[in-house]
């Protein structure tokens, strides 16, 4: 049984999108090059740094970070998890992936924070940003890869660009939400005592919104990790490449091991950011008062 489309002229939406990408490719050369070199440099530097440290020492360092951010239990768990990755022979790939996730998350948050702040402050910005975020978040992740490859070629950078775009929305949303949720009277108090808007933002709104913003950071990191794996398809390397290789060669052991390594990284990053969120002054205060 076939359905016939409603009898309307066909709109070549796909072509339009493609045209935009092609136009960008032709006309935004210098900008694209700049983006390319910055992202590339960031990732190279961080990855190199992570690779310099011997695996065992790095595992211990990550364990200590987890301990400091959360608890000794997480520290031990992290140490064991990292050792497991190492025994699976995936240490280098895991560090590549970690580097990608960190760089992409930092860049995504660097955009998300000011956009979120602007959206919280100006209703108009909020109205424009919201549908764009919906678009960014729900467009199937693979679709990003096509224009990314067209604009940046095969390699790490298109994967990073796709990751940044895909991971940014929760950062913007939760920043906006966090700032909007700050008690209006407290913000008013800042104005009433003659504080400048910038100081109100940095001394009152952002600190008080920090728990929510940190939840956004957590989401950004998780999305970045999931996208970085997909980005393995376009040559972003790391665990994603291993998983992709496992899929294309129907190599089940490789696929599972790569997958497990991703899960270990994910849990590590998730628990750490959650732990850090609980350490912000405001979160500490609400805990302290809940006890009292």
């Amino acid at each position: 049984m076939t359905h016939t489309a409603i009898d309307l002229p066909r709109l070549p939406i796909g072509d339009w999108c493609a045209a935009v990408v092609l136009w960008a490719q032709e006309n935004l050369g210098p900008i694209l090059d700049a983006i390319y070199s910055v992202l590339r440099a960031l990732d190279d530097k961080l990855a190199a740094g992570l690779h310099v440290v011997p695996a065992l020492l790095m595992a211990v360092i990550l364990g200590l970070v987890a301990w400091a951010a959360s608890s000794w239990k997480l520290g031990v768990g992290t140490l064991l998890g990292m050792l497991l990755i190492s025994t699976m022979g995936m240490w280098d790939e895991a560090m590549d992936t970690l580097s990608l996730v960190i760089v992409c998350s930092v860049v995504a948050m660097a955009f998300a924070l000011p956009i979120g702040v602007a959206a919280a402050r100006y209703e108009a910005v909020s109205h424009v940003v919201r549908p764009v975020l919906d678009f960014m978040q729900t467009l199937p992740v693979f679709v990003y890869l096509i224009p990314a490859v067209l604009l940046f070629g095969i390699g790490v950078v298109p994967g990073m660009v796709a990751t940044i775009v895909f991971a940014m929305p929760p950062g913007v949303r939760l920043t906006e939400l966090g700032i909007r949720q700050v008690d209006r009277e407290v913000v008013e108090a800042g104005h009433a005592f003659g504080a400048a808007p910038r100081r109100i933002l940095t001394r009152i709104q952002v600190p008080l919104a920090m728990p929510t913003i940190m939840a956004g950071v957590n989401q950004v990191i998780m999305l970045a990790l999931s996208m970085v794996v997909v980005a393995g398809m376009v040559g972003a390397g790391g665990l994603g490449a291993l998983v992709y290789q496992g899929i294309t060669t129907m190599d089940m052991p490789l696929g599972f091991e790569g997958g497990i390594a991703v899960v270990i990284l994910a849990m590590f990053l998730d628990r750490i950011t959650a732990g850090l969120a609980g350490r912000s002054p405001v979160a500490r205060v609400s805990k302290a008062t809940a006890r009292a």
Partner: peptide
């Protein structure tokens, strides 16, 4: 206006409006 607020007039709020942190 900000200078006037800093130097001449301060305010007490219904729900205190203190900085919790």
């Amino acid at each position: 206006l900000r200078r006037i607020r800093r130097e001449r007039v301060s305010m007490v709020f219904q729900h205190f409006a203190l900085l919790p942190h």
